[in-house]
């Protein structure tokens, strides 16, 4: 029994880098949970993926200019992600090309550019850092950044929650009672990019979106309403962070993939066992004559 407790808690008691990583996961989960749920409800899951890749060249340019400095990489990543989102939105608006196609075009350009920059100007170790993150090397500055982004996300969501939901569920109604909801859409896109930037330091550009989408996708099998889905997704994201860190510690695995795989495992379990529409509930005959 004491062995088990040791296994679950000792790494965090003994090592400050593990504690910091855990706190980073907690903050990431708080921001990514609700943002991910709204992203899936807006049918933008794949755009989250595209945006996470789009962040790369900005981070790479920041890396070139400032070295392995968090502010430079974050600022670059944020600018690149936002540029891709806006360009894709503009193309869709003016040409009628569907948004998923224009998003794909711009993120691919962005990703290729990013890999090019990093591989010609840095070592392959640097590339690995940018692509897969280094949650175990999260310092105080990164921690502060991740925590600030989480706080900002939650505050902004609380502020625009109602119009954002209405714009998603019945855009015609919002337009009729108060005018176009473009402002809320834009504010939300900024939050998505911000949270991806928060995630890429810890998990890397390729994995950052995982902590956003997998908990959100899993939460759908447990909760019925938007707020409860967001709460469930947050709990799943934080839990994935904790279990993933333990797993990577005990088996000496890279922490980013371990965290995302844990989230993936929780998704698969939810898919099978979820109370709402999970496979087990769907295919087992329900005793619906009893109450």
């Amino acid at each position: 029994m004491s062995g088990l407790v040791d296994g679950l808690f000792t790494p965090f008691v003994e090592f400050s880098f593990m504690r910091r990583a855990l706190v980073a996961c907690l903050a990431l989960g708080l921001g990514c949970g609700p943002v991910g749920v709204l992203l899936t409800l807006r049918r933008m899951s794949l755009m989250g993926d595209a945006l996470s890749h789009a962040v790369l060249p900005g981070a790479a340019i920041g890396f070139l200019l400032g070295g392995f400095s968090l502010p430079a990489m974050s600022l670059g990543g944020f600018a690149a992600g936002l540029a891709v989102a806006l360009l894709a939105g503009l193309v869709t608006r003016f040409t009628g090309q569907r948004e998923d196609a224009s998003f794909a075009a711009f993120y691919l350009i962005s990703l290729a550019l990013g890999v090019l920059i990093v591989s010609t100007h840095g070592s392959s170790v640097d590339l690995l850092h940018v692509l897969f993150g280094t949650i175990l090397a999260v310092d105080d500055a990164s921690l502060l950044l991740v925590a600030s982004i989480a706080s900002l996300s939650l505050l902004t969501l609380a502020l625009i929650y109602r119009p954002l939901i209405v714009e998603c569920f019945d855009p015609g109604f919002l337009q009729a009672v108060q005018g176009r909801g473009t402002v809320y859409h834009l504010a939300f896109l900024i939050l998505v990019v911000l949270n991806l930037v928060a995630g890429f330091q810890a998990l890397g550009t390729l994995m950052a979106v995982g902590l956003m989408m997998l908990p959100a996708a899993a939460a759908r099998f447990w909760a019925q309403e938007v707020w409860s889905m967001a709460a469930t997704a947050t709990v799943i994201a934080v839990l994935s962070g904790y279990l993933g860190l333990l797993w990577s510690y005990h088996y000496d695995l890279p922490s980013g993939p371990a965290i995302i795989l844990t989230a993936g495992l929780i998704y698969l379990l939810s898919l099978g066992l979820g109370r709402r529409d999970g496979l087990l509930v769907r295919f087992l005959p329900r005793p619906h004559l009893q109450s």
Partner: peptide
């Protein structure tokens, strides 16, 4: 604007959205 109510054709509304009748 506040004096006008508008019911668009139903197709524009996402009827799978997780929201309760009372909230709507």
């Amino acid at each position: 604007r506040a004096d006008i109510a508008y019911l668009p054709q139903q197709a524009q509304i996402d009827r799978q959205f997780p929201i309760t009748v009372l909230d709507v």
